[in-house]
């Protein structure tokens, strides 16, 4: 069954662009252009995720979110905002949003984040000691990584990155998602810092092994997994 996404966005072009993009990816998207209607839809019907613009006519995005959470609606919410400053983002996340994306954004970025939101486990985090993907095995206790039984030496920072990739395997991860997830970095350093990390990790992980596990997704980011 297709996932249902509610898009609350007053800018018609942006709303249409998001809705079209979501439909192309097989989602069922519904758009509303006003805060009050948005809140009505959010509390009335069951959506799998909500994309919410921060600045809305009628009712501010943050007020919609607060009212939703107060009404026990736990649907994951991704905030879209032209307010890029750090403080606006922090206050967005502390007031009940699950993720925050600053305009302008690439659709691929929105899609990757949305997929991660939809995949979010409902229960508490389970304590794993070994992470696996294909023939890659990461032992979190003795901090050893093996591929096809062969030990791979990783620097602490490479270990950290691979752990994040393993925890989100088979999903497209954008550069900013990795900066946020691995290093708690919330702005774009503007240089290809992530690409350099990935090419180094790829050399250690994929060189001499088959099939390649670390993939570059053109125009979007990276993905760890066995492509099928």
């Amino acid at each position: 069954m297709s996932r249902r996404i509610l898009v609350i966005e007053d800018d018609e072009k942006t709303a249409a662009f998001i809705a079209q993009g979501l439909k192309d990816e097989g989602f069922l998207a519904e758009t509303v252009g006003d805060g009050r209607d948005g809140l009505f839809h959010a509390t009335d019907r069951a959506f799998d995720a909500i994309i919410l613009d921060r600045m809305l006519p009628g009712m501010d995005g943050m007020a919609v979110l607060a009212a939703m959470r107060a009404a026990q609606v736990t649907t994951p919410v991704l905030i879209l905002s032209a307010l890029g400053s750090v403080d606006a983002r922090v206050s967005g996340l502390t007031s009940g949003a699950n993720d925050y994306l600053v305009k302008p954004f690439a659709f691929s970025e929105l899609l990757a984040r949305l997929r991660l939101l939809l995949a979010r486990p409902t229960g508490g985090p389970t304590e794993e000691t070994v992470l696996r993907c294909g023939d890659i095995e990461m032992n979190l206790l003795n901090r050893q990584v093996r591929r096809a039984g062969q030990k791979i030496d990783l620097q602490p920072r490479e270990f950290r990155l691979l752990e994040y990739l393993l925890r989100h395997q088979d999903r497209v991860l954008t550069r900013t998602m990795m900066l946020e997830g691995v290093w708690d970095y919330h702005f774009d350093p503007g240089t290809n810092v992530v690409d350099v990390h990935m090419s180094r990790l790829r050399r250690k992980l994929d060189d001499g092994f088959d099939p390649p596990m670390l993939h570059t997704i053109r125009g979007a980011g990276y993905m760890l997994g066995t492509l099928t």
Binding site: K13, T14, A82, L83, G84, K103, P104, F105, F107
Partner: peptide
């Protein structure tokens, strides 16, 4: 500053969106 950010970024968003669609 907030409304300036909003006013300036929305056209930039649309610009990027259009470029991505063309790409």
């Amino acid at each position: 500053t907030d409304s300036m950010a909003h006013d300036l970024r929305s056209p930039v968003t649309r610009l990027k969106t259009t470029l991505e669609q063309a790409f």
